[in-house]
Each structure stands twice: as C-alpha cells, then as structure tokens.
Computed example of a mutant assay.
Amino acid sequence: MPRNKKPQSILRNRVNFPPFNGLPDEAEIDLIYWDEGPFGFAPSQHWCFLGEIVDFIGLARVLLYVKDKDGQVITVALHTDDRGRALAPQVKKGHTVAVLYGEQHGFLDMSVGLRVENASNIKIIPCSLEQLLSASDDIAAHRGQPRHCGSCGKENTSENRHCLRLCSRCKQASYCGEDCQKKAWVDGHKVDCKALAGVQWFAGKNWIEFDDYFCF
C-alpha cells in the first residue's frame, strides 16, 4: 500500500523559490520560467529568491549580503530610485529578504548577485530564513487538519468550533481564549507569529500559472 506523501511546503519548492544558482541569468532566456509565444518570450510562471541577511552597508546605496537556501552568500544591490533608503530601516542581520523575479547579475567588482531596480519587487521579512521555511512546513503539515488550541491543545470540534479564535496577525494559530493566547505568546508564538504571517502572502498566490507580475 503506497505511503501518503507529505503535503508540499510552498517555500521548499526550488523552482518557484530557487536558491541563487537556480535563478535565471539576466543574459539568457531560461525556459523553466519563460515560454515562446507569437509575440516573443513571456513569463510562464513566477519565482522569488529568499535569503537571510548576514551583513549590509548603506552609503551611496543599500547593499545587502545574504545567504540563500544552499548557504551561498551573494550581494543584493538596491538600484531603486531612492537607492534603497526607504527599505533601510527594515534591514537587520538575521532577517529574510525576498526578491521577486531576481536574475543572476555580474557586478563590476566581479561579485555575483541580484540587482533590484523595482522597489515593489523586494521585501524584508522580520525572521530568519530557517524560521520562515519551518513556518511554511508547519502550514503545509496542518493543512486540512482540525484546528486545536495552540496552548492547551483543545481540538476544534462541532461542539466548540465557535470557541477557538484565530491569531489576528498570522491567521494560523488558534486559541480557546485570552489566557491561552497570552501563555502561547510567551511560550514562543511571539517569534513564530512573524514567520507564519510572512508565509501567508506567498501561500495565497498561484506560482505556477502566470497572468501578471506579482508585487509586494
């Protein structure tokens, strides 16, 4: 009898969420992400790079040094109109940067990375990359399962379905009431909540069918 497959964790998908070496090169047409049509090449699916900030500088423009899923450290250079100044207050070591439609770019100093020109293509998520990936795994594992209190473990049944309430921020954790919610917050949800909330934007999109560009 075949084993049940584990649900797909969306951010573990290495096609739509590739490490740096899986990104298309800016000088080539990558047929994983582009299709040829009657009017030339057009995107066929969406992709997003995720990396954890290990260092940054912000003199003439904001430069981020980020570690991808495979541990490779690359440069993310902000060539937006404001050179990244609006994003700068959110930049912290240990946070995760997400870049939509990133392409491998070779800089003049011979380093490789991402050149971001559109401010709506980049976002800082206030948690580590591992926390974000773990939150994605958690959402996938509990998809379709009965809800239960994140503190005492009470399950959501037909008798008490109106008693459990969702966390207003992450929309994932459920609680019997205020006491359980406060206890869970102190016990760890304060950290998990940011990561779960970060995953929600990605989980709400169809990444394999392209209709129009996404933006943050």
Rank of each mutant, 00 (worst) to 15 (best):
R3Y: 08
N4P: 01
N4T: 02
K6E: 08
P7I: 01
Q8P: 00
Q8C: 05
S9K: 10
S9T: 07
I10G: 01
L11G: 06
R12A: 07
N13L: 04
V15D: 09
V15M: 08
N16K: 01
N16Q: 02
F17K: 03
P18M: 02
P18N: 02
P18V: 02
P18T: 01
L23D: 02
P24D: 03
P24M: 05
P24G: 04
E26T: 00
E28S: 07
E28W: 01
L31N: 03
I32L: 09
I32N: 11
Y33E: 00
F39V: 03
G40M: 05
F41G: 00
F41P: 00
F41R: 01
H46R: 01
W47S: 06
F49H: 07
L50E: 08
L50F: 13
G51Q: 02
G51N: 05
E52I: 00
I53R: 02
D55R: 06
D55V: 07
D55N: 12
F56Y: 15
F56A: 10
F56C: 05
I57Q: 13
A60P: 00
A60K: 15
V62T: 14
V62E: 06
V62M: 13
Y65W: 05
V66S: 08
D68Y: 06
D68V: 10
D70R: 13
G71W: 14
V73Y: 13
I74V: 15
T80P: 07
D81P: 11
D81W: 14
R85H: 15
L87H: 10
A88C: 12
A88V: 15
A88R: 15
Q90V: 07
Q90E: 15
Q90M: 15
G94T: 12
H95D: 06
H95S: 10
V97N: 06
V99Y: 13
V99Q: 11
L100S: 07
Y101A: 09
E103H: 06
E103N: 01
H105Y: 14
G106E: 06
G106H: 07
F107C: 05
D109I: 08
D109E: 07
M110H: 12
V112W: 12
V112M: 10
G113H: 07
R115M: 12
V116R: 04
E117G: 02
E117K: 08
E117S: 11
K123W: 02
I124K: 08
I125C: 13
I125G: 04
C127H: 06
Q131K: 14
L133S: 13
L133P: 06
L133C: 12
H142V: 01
G144N: 09
Q145N: 11
P146A: 10
R147Q: 11
K154F: 01
N156L: 03
N156V: 00
E159N: 04
R161K: 14
C163K: 12
C167P: 08
C167W: 08
S168P: 00
K171I: 00
K171N: 12
S174A: 14
S174R: 04
Y175G: 08
E178L: 13
Q181E: 11
H189F: 03
K190R: 10
D192T: 03
D192R: 07
C193L: 11
A195H: 03
A197D: 08
A197E: 11
Q200C: 02
F202N: 00
A203T: 01
G204P: 04
W207T: 10
E209W: 04
F210W: 14
F210D: 10
D211F: 14
D212R: 15
F214R: 10
